Computed example of a mutant assay.
Amino acid sequence: MECSRDNLTKNEYAKIDELQPEYNRMMCPPSADRMWPRKQNFGKCCYVQYHNFNALGYLPFENAFFEGMVSDSGVTVSKKRDCLKLKGERVYLIVGMKQRGHRQKDFYLWCYTQVEEIEAFENENYGVHGTDFICKKPIRLNDLPGFEHFAKHTMGSFAYGLQNAINDPFSQVLMNDKLYASMEKYNQKALRWLADFEDGLEDSDLWLTNKDGRNHPSWFIFEMEPNTSTAYLRVRAISLLWNKKFFIEQFKIFCKRFPEVQTLCIPVAENDEPTDEIAYKAYDIAKKFSNLKVQFYIP
């Protein structure tokens, strides 16, 4: 069956639904732009990697933020053999985040990695190592001209994984050097960088920071239940507990604000025992605070 280029993807979706084949069942069939690249060629490469926040549960560099500084050494892991060609190229990272109350995901341009080394792992994955350059402020891409086509057709709704997007004009947005800065610029300023980004998020469950009346940011790791003496360790904060020094310092600050704290509730996964490795670490840390009770709960 012949059809126009504009209808190719639509007809392929329909045929796959009709035939229900055992093979050739990609989540997103290749778009016409991938099969017939545009004649315009803005450069050699513009590789794009996707970070699905809702699937992974964390933001890029999240643990580094809590150290007050970010490393300029980055790594991208992929199964694609294209990685072997990436030395000297750039890999741009886009973060997708579904906020509570939003019908669609928000997509942010986050950083790029200047690739310096390629590592092959035994499990057929490749590690792409290099120097990271972070966006001065993550850019929400959803409403920018050309992004809808870029996301749906060139990136296959981000189901394709690591991919060269140079043939899509939207790649020029990603490749604008004025948007980025060296990671070193944010040493000791990572908390402010993250707090400024979270100012634009409406879903408070995603916040790791809050700001006081003077616009000074602080970590949002513990919550005080109203009209009680019970504090809760927020679920996303549980991954921080390997850093005992950081946890203790932040909890001391919290207790100064809320001296009535008597009980700390620590989240655990359903069906897990309180001796779960992470919860045990939290319990061990909390014991250092006199007269503090520790309880576990299922979020």
Rank of each mutant, 00 (worst) to 15 (best):
G156Y: 02
F251L: 07
D212T: 14
C265L: 10
F170G: 00
F247A: 14
A159H: 09
Q250C: 02
A151Q: 00
F220L: 06
E270T: 13
L191Y: 03
L208V: 00
W193Y: 13
I221T: 02
I266G: 00
D199N: 10
E148P: 00
M175E: 07
A151S: 10
E260H: 13
N176R: 08
G156M: 07
E249Y: 02
D205N: 14
I253V: 11
F254R: 06
R257W: 03
P267R: 03
K245D: 13
T154K: 08
A151M: 09
L201G: 03
K152S: 11
D203S: 14
D196C: 05
F246D: 02
P267V: 11
M155H: 00
K245T: 11
T228H: 08
D205M: 15
Y232K: 13
I166F: 05
S204T: 15
E198P: 05
D177P: 10
R236A: 14
I253E: 11
G200S: 15
K152I: 07
G213F: 09
A195S: 15
N164M: 11
P226I: 03
M183R: 06
N187V: 10
E198A: 03
C255T: 15
T209G: 01
L174A: 08
N176M: 05
V173L: 09
W207Q: 09
G161C: 09
K245H: 15
Q250H: 04
D205A: 10
H153C: 03
A159F: 12
M224W: 09
F258C: 06
D203F: 12
F197P: 08
D196V: 08
P217L: 14
Q172Y: 06
E202Q: 08
V268N: 03
T228P: 02
N210P: 04
W219A: 00
Q188V: 01
K189C: 11
I266R: 00
Y232D: 06
M183T: 15
C255R: 15
D205H: 12
L162A: 04
T154P: 04
T263H: 05
N187L: 07
N167K: 08
N164W: 09
Q262N: 13
C265N: 12
S204V: 15
A151T: 00
L241S: 08
F150T: 00
N210E: 15
E249I: 05
S229H: 13
M175Y: 08
E225N: 11
C255H: 05
P267K: 14
N187C: 14
K178G: 05
L240W: 01
E260R: 04
A165S: 15
L201H: 11
R257S: 04
T209L: 05
E198D: 04
N227K: 07
P145A: 09
E225P: 00
A195I: 04
S229C: 12
L179W: 11
D168M: 02
H149K: 10
K189M: 13
D177E: 15
F197Q: 07
N210F: 06
R257P: 01
E270G: 02
L240S: 02
T263M: 07
L208S: 08
S218F: 07
E260T: 07
N210Q: 13
S182R: 13
K256A: 12
H153F: 15
F247M: 14
A159K: 10
N167Q: 15
